[in-house]
């Protein structure tokens, strides 16, 4: 897929709490095709402390309005600066990057997200729904303060919630939600994004049930376009770049001990 470098205008800066923000960005130009699971590299001009672009997965896309949104959790100086950006300012993006999730043509899908890992699952649910796949989405967090945007996810699928302390939804980990073993639903594929420990637990659960599973990995990137070879992950075929050969991997291709 052809990649572009385009300036977007910040249309909305929706602060979810002091750590998490959704930025809605609009382009003057018509957006090209973007796949669920792909990501963007954002220029954060604050040299010397931030120098390289910052990668974020695409949270949602509206091809009619030419808007693209990003779910941003503060991880350091670059992301913090982005959460404080004003409406009307410009952001320079390289996109669309990476491979994206595979989308089946029918059936049911289970999407499991934790923390800012829920970011790419909204656009994924939308694409699945448009492709006649029924999405069930489990949003997990430590407490109800970590669960965001339930109404948005509900537009594209059935939302289920788990929290460690039981303050919202079912108490316990995402892999223990009762929907997973619901005898009335047969999941054809499981997608997950979130902390690595959670994704590994999801991968283990999927493997034990014999269900296809795709994970979206995070990695420290310099270029985002496969030029620097910094963001590798170990696969059965050797080191692969998360930026160009991922960020989405089938768990059978990774060398995870699960």
């Amino acid at each position: 897929m052809k990649k572009y470098i385009i300036d977007f205008k910040v249309l909305e800066n929706k602060k979810l709490n002091d750590q998490n923000t959704i930025l809605v960005l609009q382009s003057d130009e018509k957006l090209p095709e973007i796949l669920a699971g792909q990501f963007v590299e954002v220029l954060v001009e604050d040299s010397p402390s931030t120098f390289l672009r910052r990668p974020f997965s695409v949270h949602n896309v509206d091809f009619h309005e030419n808007t693209l949104s990003l779910f941003i959790k503060i991880a350091g100086i670059g992301s913090k600066k982005l959460t404080n950006i004003e409406v009307g300012e410009n952001l320079n993006l390289i996109f669309p990057l990476g491979n994206g999730f595979s989308i089946p043509n029918e059936g049911s899908a289970l999407l499991i997200g934790g923390g800012c890992g829920i970011g790419p699952l909204l656009f994924l649910a939308k694409c699945l729904m448009e492709n006649n796949v029924e999405p069930h989405i489990i949003l997990g967090g430590r407490s109800k303060e970590d669960i965001f945007e339930v109404h948005e996810y509900s537009k594209y699928g059935t939302v289920h919630i788990t929290t460690d302390d039981g303050s919202l939804g079912e108490k316990g980990f995402v892999t223990k939600h009762t929907i997973i073993d619901d005898p009335d639903i047969k999941f054809d594929i499981i997608y997950t994004c979130g902390p690595e420990i959670m994704m590994k637990a999801v991968a283990k659960m999927a493997k034990s049930k014999g269900i296809e599973c795709e994970v979206s990995l995070e990695n420290t990137m310099a270029c985002g376009i496969g030029a620097c070879l910094c963001c590798v992950t170990e696969t059965i075929d050797g080191n692969k770049c998360v930026c160009t050969e991922g960020p989405v991997f089938n768990i059978n291709d990774l060398k995870w001990q699960i």
Binding site: T50, F51, T220, C231, V232
Partner: peptide, 8 residues
């Protein structure tokens, strides 16, 4: 991995 660190 990790192969990269951003510095000033």
């Amino acid at each position: 991995y990790p192969r990269m660190a951003e510095t000033a």
